[in-house]
């Protein structure tokens, strides 16, 4: 095992210990905090699949967060709370929309790709703002969390926490399998030299499109979790600054690694939501330069600070 794997594993163990520690300290609030962090971690892991491994800089990943959230919110609005149905819709709808967006966007590259993914997310954002039936810009409240008859009850904060943790581990597992498969080799190869991959006979476009779809579906699941966590759905989930946020988690932690996005989500969420705002209301004046410094000096992210070579 590499040290990074050890680090990732111990990080996940620490996350698993959050509820008992929080309970022992009489601070159940931290269960909420880390649950939200893990949800964003799933989103970040999914983005990393295409961004870090595939070199596809999607500036519109928040779209799937929104689609996943509305896929739970809209059935719930009509009284359908069955989680199996809701979450399946979330994943399928995200995959389908990612397929459409990807099919068009992947024709472009570089900055054009960044901007066209942004444009699609903006369209969805405006769609969310304008559809009055589902609350428009106000969004709507989720009457009840998704129900999984006979399996789990998400109303329990700790149960829900472990569901999210399991899904995070599963996402990491799926990610790991993917990138180490033949499929993953093509995706990674496409990042370093697409022309060569094509020359040796791989239809890179199709591979990239499938990766784009998988990432969208995974992020859609994160959206379904987020709406259950917040018990509220709003187009704001699809705002372009959210896409930037998720992107930053990946970079901060270290892109092209499995643990990086998780670490990035933990650090950024804690900074943005808890530490900095409690310190000064001008916290964005600190976060901004911090971002710049990370990009300039910690090129490989926080994970890059750990050595990669194998333990003896």
């Amino acid at each position: 095992m590499t040290r990074r794997t050890v680090f990732l594993a111990s990080g996940l163990v620490l996350l698993a210990l959050v509820p008992p520690i929080a309970a022992a300290l009489g601070q159940p609030f931290y269960v909420d905090v880390f649950r939200r962090i893990m949800i964003f971690a799933i989103a970040a892991v999914s983005l990393d699949l295409i961004l870090g491994y595939g070199g596809m800089v999607s500036f519109g990943h928040a779209a799937y967060l929104g689609i996943g959230a509305y896929a739970v919110g809209i059935p719930a609005y009509y009284g359908l709370h069955n989680g199996y149905v809701q979450w399946t819709i979330a994943v399928l709808a995200s995959a389908a929309i990612a397929l459409v967006i990807g099919a068009i966007s992947l024709r472009t590259s570089g900055v054009y790709f960044i901007m066209i993914t942004l444009a699609f997310t903006q369209m969805l954002y405006y769609l969310g703002v304008s559809v009055e039936e589902y609350g428009g810009d106000d969004g709507m409240r989720l009457a009840a969390r998704s129900t999984f008859a006979g399996l789990v009850d998400l109303r329990g904060g700790t149960t829900f926490y472990y569901v999210v943790l399991v899904l995070l581990v599963l996402s990491l597992g799926v990610g790991h399998r993917l990138i180490n498969s033949r499929f993953g080799m093509v995706i990674r190869g496409g990042r370093s030299n697409e022309a060569r991959m094509r020359a040796i006979g791989f239809a890179t476009f199709r591979y990239k499109l499938v990766a784009f779809m998988i990432a969208g579906a995974m992020c859609g699941l994160a959206g379904a979790l987020l709406v259950n966590h917040t018990e509220y759905v709003t187009p704001e989930f699809m705002h372009w600054t959210r896409s930037g946020d998720i992107m930053f988690m990946v970079i901060l932690g270290g892109m092209g690694t499995l643990g990086g996005p998780v670490l990035g989500a933990v650090v950024l969420r804690l900074l943005e939501d808890l530490l900095l705002p409690s310190w000064t209301e001008h916290w964005q004046a600190i976060l901004g330069p911090f971002l710049v410094l990370v990009v300039l000096f910690a090129k490989r992210g926080l994970v890059g600070l750990l050595p990669e070579r194998r333990d003896g």
Partner: peptide, 25 residues
Amino acid sequence: QTLYERDHLDQVLATFGLILFFNEL
């Protein structure tokens, strides 16, 4: 200065950081 050689991703993020900074400034 040092961002010219970097990929667009780094540029997007660093300049996003500048937005936050200037707004608060």
